[in-house]
């Protein structure tokens, strides 16, 4: 009898996991993602609201991501922003923890959870596909990408692209263009071409504020020509294999 009771208790704990296998993508999103991710919008309109953000906003995921990347990432989640989504929580500048460099100067350091591997729900292949489909349906910002197309004729080599990216606009101050090369507070960009739709990249770089009113990425007033070149460069960059240097 005791064994039977134990089995019942065990089954009660396990069954939600079994049931979830049959859930639709939208249901999984609601049950397992909505507690951290914003699925409804709008984006934070004040700094104080921005500081409360726990995870990237997903309410415009359908305008932003590539489906195949979502499916792969949801099965094997890894960190995309080295300093986390909300770097205000992860930077430590108390003198004892500051990093000293060769020249003896001290710098603020990353601290806490971001130094450990990302903690995120991992989904099965079937669930990941369903969730990716549900995310791709979230398209409130179609107007922002309407008419924005990538001009593939404005191709650049990796070197020329890096000059525009790094020297002309200074993007590497915050973004990494290979693992460990570049700043920490932006999202890594050596995977951006695989992760993001070209139209989103074009529209976001042109004016980040349109997508996220209080975001810490400035509008660099990139010329239309350079905009196409940078996007082509990021797509080319994401085809490089960085797994060795990881």
């Amino acid at each position: 009898m005791k064994r039977f009771l134990l089995f019942i208790v065990f089954a009660a704990f396990v069954s939600p996991a079994l049931v979830s296998a049959g859930e639709s993508g939208a249901e999984i999103l609601k049950a397992r993602c909505a507690s951290c991710h914003d699925l409804k919008g709008p984006a934070p309109a004040t700094i104080r609201q921005l500081w409360k953000r726990d995870a990237p906003d997903l309410f415009y995921a359908g305008n932003k991501f590539r489906r195949e990347w979502l499916v792969a990432w949801l099965q094997k989640p890894v960190r995309i922003r080295p300093a986390g989504v909300n770097y205000l929580r992860t930077i430590n500048s108390t003198p004892t923890h500051q990093e000293k460099t060769k020249k003896g100067r001290k710098y603020d350091v990353l601290w806490g959870a971001v130094l450990k591997p990302l903690k995120h729900v991992t989904l099965s292949k079937q669930d990941a596909g369903a969730v990716a489909d549900a995310l791709m349906d979230l398209k409130p910002h179609t107007a922002l990408v309407a008419g924005v197309t990538l001009d593939t004729s404005k191709k650049v080599s990796l070197d020329a692209g890096e000059v525009i990216f790094d020297k002309v606009y200074g993007c590497t101050s915050c973004h990494q263009i290979e693992p460990g090369y570049g700043g920490y507070t932006g999202a890594e960009l050596y995977t951006a071409g695989k992760r993001l739709q070209p139209a989103f990249m074009l529209s976001y770089i042109k004016r980040p504020k349109n997508w996220d009113p209080k975001i810490w990425m400035p509008n660099l007033h990139v010329s239309p020509d350079d905009l196409q070149k940078i996007t082509n460069y990021l797509i080319l960059l994401s085809k490089e294999d960085f797994s060795e240097s990881n």
């Binding site: 770097y87 710098y107 603020d108 570049g182 700043g183």
Partner: peptide, 12 residues
């Protein structure tokens, strides 16, 4: 954090 030109992105 304290404006001393020592932000987290600086080493790069």
């Amino acid at each position: 954090m304290h404006g001393k030109g020592d932000g987290v992105n600086v080493p790069a």
